[in-house]
Simulated scan of single mutants.
Amino acid sequence: MFGGEVWGGIFCLSVFGSLLAGASFSLFFSHWFQAKVHYLVTLCAAILLTVMLVDIVPHSLSTYNSLSVIGGMLVGLPIIASLDHFSHKRIRGD
Score class of each variant (00 low, 15 high):
Phe2Cys: 11
Phe2Asp: 13
Gly3Ile: 10
Gly3Cys: 10
Gly4Thr: 05
Gly4Cys: 08
Glu5Gln: 04
Trp7Ser: 06
Trp7Gly: 01
Gly8Cys: 04
Gly8Ser: 14
Gly8Pro: 00
Gly9Asn: 13
Gly9Trp: 01
Gly9Tyr: 02
Ile10Val: 15
Ile10Gln: 14
Phe11Trp: 12
Cys12Trp: 02
Cys12Arg: 15
Leu13Lys: 15
Leu13Met: 14
Ser14Ile: 15
Val15Arg: 03
Val15Asn: 08
Val15Ser: 12
Ser18Ile: 04
Ser18Lys: 15
Ser18Asp: 01
Leu19Asp: 00
Leu19Thr: 07
Ala21Glu: 02
Ala21Trp: 01
Ala21Phe: 09
Ala21Gln: 03
Gly22Asn: 13
Ala23Phe: 14
Ala23Val: 04
Ala23Leu: 11
Ser24Met: 13
Phe25Pro: 03
Phe25Asn: 12
Phe25Met: 08
Leu27Gly: 13
Phe28Ala: 00
Ser30Leu: 05
Ser30Glu: 02
His31Trp: 10
His31Ser: 02
Phe33Arg: 07
Gln34Ile: 11
Lys36Tyr: 06
Lys36Asn: 08
Val37Arg: 15
Val37Asp: 01
Val37Cys: 04
Val37Glu: 12
Val37Gln: 12
His38Glu: 12
Tyr39Arg: 05
Tyr39Leu: 01
Leu40Asp: 10
Val41His: 07
Val41Asp: 09
Leu43Ala: 14
Leu43Asn: 09
Cys44Ala: 08
Ala45Ile: 05
Ala45Lys: 05
Ala45Met: 08
Ala46Gln: 15
Ala46Cys: 15
Ala46Val: 13
Ile47Thr: 14
Ile47Glu: 08
Leu48Val: 10
Leu48Pro: 02
Leu48Ala: 09
Leu49Pro: 03
Thr50Phe: 11
Val51Leu: 08
Met52Ser: 11
Met52Ala: 13
Met52Trp: 14
Leu53Val: 11
Leu53Arg: 04
Leu53His: 12
Val54His: 02
Asp55Phe: 04
Asp55Ala: 08
Ile56Arg: 06
Pro58Glu: 02
His59Met: 07
Leu61Val: 03
Leu61Glu: 08
Ser62Tyr: 05
Thr63Asp: 07
Thr63Cys: 05
Thr63His: 00
Thr63Ser: 06
Tyr64Asn: 11
Ser66Ile: 03
Ser66Gln: 09
Ser66Cys: 06
Ser68Val: 05
Val69Lys: 00
Val69Arg: 02
Val69Tyr: 01
Val69Leu: 00
Ile70Lys: 00
Ile70Glu: 00
Ile70Ala: 01
Gly71Ser: 06
Gly71Ile: 00
Gly72Phe: 03
Met73Arg: 03
Met73Ile: 03
Met73Gly: 05
Leu74Cys: 07
Val75Thr: 12
Val75Lys: 06
Val75Glu: 07
Gly76Phe: 01
Gly76His: 07
Gly76Arg: 03
Leu77Asp: 10
Leu77Pro: 00
Pro78Arg: 10
Ile79Thr: 14
Ile80Val: 14
Ala81Met: 10
Ser82Gln: 13
Ser82Glu: 10
Leu83Thr: 15
Asp84Phe: 14
Asp84Gly: 06
Phe86Ile: 13
Phe86Tyr: 13
Phe86Thr: 06
Phe86His: 09
Phe86Ser: 06
Ser87Asp: 00
Ser87Asn: 00
His88Cys: 11
His88Tyr: 04
Arg92Pro: 04
Arg92Glu: 15
Arg92Tyr: 01
Gly93Cys: 14
Gly93Gln: 09
Asp94His: 13
